[in-house]
């Protein structure tokens, strides 16, 4: 049922103008997807750091070198993980890759190294600073009596910055603003068989008149497409029967219908042919309510 998903949320679609002059459409990644990818990435960081600590702890190196390596690895992992992956994986980190997210330039240009670095260094203020304050690691704060207030402040701080993306339509966090990037969801769509391909010869069984084909518009056609493409799911037979019944009534079909599915496929082919021919003459009918 991928057929109508893209149209279902027009509010999240953005078009980038490619250098070739053809706009390409993207979906802005949802807040939940962003959060999920981030949690996965943090998990990977923690696992990597743990694995690293364990592995160097058992190598029998001197305590000094182990300590130095531990500090260095921790810093590199927390500060450079995102930037390094986004640079070498074209805007993806492991978490983003799993959720099919990707960082792109907001104006359609190539994603530059500067932008990647900028958006990820902002995490320092968005996340790591309040986390450090929370655990009393910064400025020796825990030593000063007012520790609890600082911790409360840190929690509010984290909330403000992590909810920031929910208050703008492109789901930008502060790092995205500073770098001029945004995060899109780019799942790979599969090309399914053309529904009109199988039945060209048998189409004469259902000779629709032009008046019958002028009842519906492109929207209804694509809903019908999504119904036909859902073959194999539960309730498919019921759905076909209901839809075929409805269409027959609406277009006043009087011929015999031995097979609902064949009827629907034939209607789809005829309807699409009619609408596409009219499109070639510049008449696009969006839906059945379109009276132009």
């Amino acid at each position: 049922m991928t057929a109508v998903n893209l149209g279902a949320e027009p509010g999240r679609q953005r078009a980038l103008l490619t250098p070739e002059g053809v706009p390409v459409r993207f979906m802005v990644a949802a807040g939940g997807d962003r959060a999920g990818a981030f949690v996965l990435d943090v998990l990977f960081i923690v696992l990597a750091v743990l694995a690293f600590f364990l592995s160097i702890a058992f190598t029998g190196m001197g305590g000094d070198l182990v300590g130095a390596l531990a500090f260095l690895f921790w810093f590199v992992a927390t500060t450079l993980y995102f930037a390094a992956f986004e640079l070498s994986w074209q805007g993806q980190t492991p978490g983003k890759r799993l959720l099919k997210l990707r960082v792109v330039d907001a104006h359609g240009g190539p994603l530059t190294a500067e932008a990647v670095v900028a958006r990820n260094l902002m995490r320092e203020v968005e996340l790591w600073l309040p986390v450090k304050v929370f655990f009393g690691l910064s400025f020796g704060l825990a030593l000063a009596g007012g520790g609890s207030w600082w911790i409360l402040g840190a929690v509010i701080w984290i909330f403000l910055f992590s909810l920031f993306p929910l208050f703008n339509e492109n789901r930008l966090r502060v790092g995205d603003l500073v770098a001029g990037t945004f995060v899109i969801r780019s799942p790979a769509a599969t090309l399914l068989e053309d529904l009109t391909a199988a039945l060209r010869e048998k189409a004469a069984d259902y000779p629709f008149t032009e008046a019958q084909l002028d009842v519906y518009g492109a929207y209804e056609l694509q809903v019908l497409e999504s119904v036909l493409r859902s073959a194999g799911t539960t309730g498919f037979a019921d759905q076909v029967r209901t839809v075929a019944e409805k269409i027959r009534r609406r277009v006043a079909w009087e011929g015999a219908v031995p097979d609902d599915l064949a009827f629907l496929r034939a209607f789809y082919a005829a309807q699409r042919g009619r609408l596409e021919r009219r499109m070639l003459f510049g008449k696009r009918r969006a839906s059945k309510h379109d009276r132009s």
């Binding site: 805007g91 190539p110 790979a188 399914l192 499109m279």
Partner: peptide
């Protein structure tokens, strides 16, 4: 976009073009 109403085809081409765009113009 101008001649076809096959939603699956349009979606496929959108996705293919956008992924190719990211590879061709990516870092």
């Amino acid at each position: 976009r101008t001649i076809s109403l096959d939603q699956n085809l349009l979606e496929y081409l959108e996705s293919l073009a956008s992924r190719a765009y990211l590879v061709v113009y990516g870092a």
